[in-house]
Design a protein around this nucleic acid. Sequence first.
DNA 1: ATAGGTCCGTCCAGGTTCTGGAAGGAGAGA
DNA 2: TCTCTCCTTCCAGAACCTGGACGGACCTAT
Lengths: 227, 227
Amino acid sequence: MSKATILVVDDEEDIRELVALNLDREGYTILTCETGEQALALARAKTPDLVLLDLMLPGIDGLEVCKRLKADPAQQHVPVVMLTAKGEESDIVAGLELGADDYVTKPFSGKVLVARVRRLLRKVAETADDKALVKVHGLVIDPARHEVLLNGKPITLTLTEFNILHTLSRRPGLVFTRYQIVDAIHGDDYLVTDRAVDVQIVALRRKLGSCGKLIETVRGVGYKFKD
Amino acid sequence: MSKATILVVDDEEDIRELVALNLDREGYTILTCETGEQALALARAKTPDLVLLDLMLPGIDGLEVCKRLKADPAQQHVPVVMLTAKGEESDIVAGLELGADDYVTKPFSGKVLVARVRRLLRKVAETADDKALVKVHGLVIDPARHEVLLNGKPITLTLTEFNILHTLSRRPGLVFTRYQIVDAIHGDDYLVTDRAVDVQIVALRRKLGSCGKLIETVRGVGYKFKD
DNA sequence: ATAGGTCCGTCCAGGTTCTGGAAGGAGAGA
DNA sequence: TCTCTCCTTCCAGAACCTGGACGGACCTAT
């Protein structure tokens, strides 16, 4: 997985810089903007992995932004962290009721912020990344332990191979295009040729031995896991 | 199914060539123009699948073009990617608020550009309702799995056969000319003899067995799926 | 009913496109 | 540096699509 993209919405430049500095150091990709309108537009275009949202904004205020984000099916799973001034507890409560996931009160330290962000992203990753075991035809895929059992015996896969196998086997029968597979593993705009997937598939099939035929190729479209 | 048409709007020849080169290599059909007026005219005439739009244009500028495209019901669903100079964040945000779908900052690499374009086009394709299940007369067509069930049993079709069946069965009773069928599958201006369709239809009918008669010939016109 | 014209079904071979597989090289981490 | 992983590139084989030819089916006017 690539590093997450975080949208920072605040009308004070100092805050934006403080936040950006700290998060940038952690390797996150940062998008910043000043108003609620901009925030909604940016969120729609980029679908960030997390939103840091000041509640006191000119124009559309933070609560309204939060509400709209949570109303959009494409965005509603994106965690929102509110930035509030100390003592605005009513706002905090209102925000949480609207679906915000956490809050940080100003003034805050960079460390606290980073910790919160990291925790939330991890939480999302864990719930989104289906940790459930996948068992099919003598094959057990265990995402929690990052392990694959072939007829009871563990086999070693590289990270990419494992991810591809997991992606396909999680939705047996569904066809994935090569680029869908790439995206599922590396995130959007990761720059590779689609033939790179073929190579991984070949290696996977070989390592899976007799179970290799569970990965079916759909000519002209992509690959799917046998149903 | 066929490769998309992309409209590139930029007043710098270098940029146009760079973009065209990269996209052409990917198999996209490229239209280029230099001014906002030309862009609007071309967009109306050709309805491209995506627009790459420089914001700094002589005459009508990029933002205005974007605004007008998004105001036109016939065009508003066409994704717009802005090309901006680095540091013009205000323009980016303004563009996004006007409905642009993504942006790329100059200077950009061909790879990044291609990745963005591909991602957006796929996003559009996925939201289209092409993946809905079609059930008719003991026949189930499942685009998501790329699978056809004939009385509960799966039958194997080639890609073209599948696409034709899907096209016809989605609108039972409607007659499609041979060229309409070709267009639906390979996109406009794909040059084949209409005889090619017949051959596919024959194979389809044979594979469908008793359900073969669901595909009816309309003499002098084309084919339709039984209502 | 028949003849003539148009359109469709079928077969086959040639050419195109797609995939499997192998080899080589770049980059990250030990 | 060495190793491991992953990506690109190339090639050959296979699957597939298409064009063309031909006979039969259908329609219409006579």
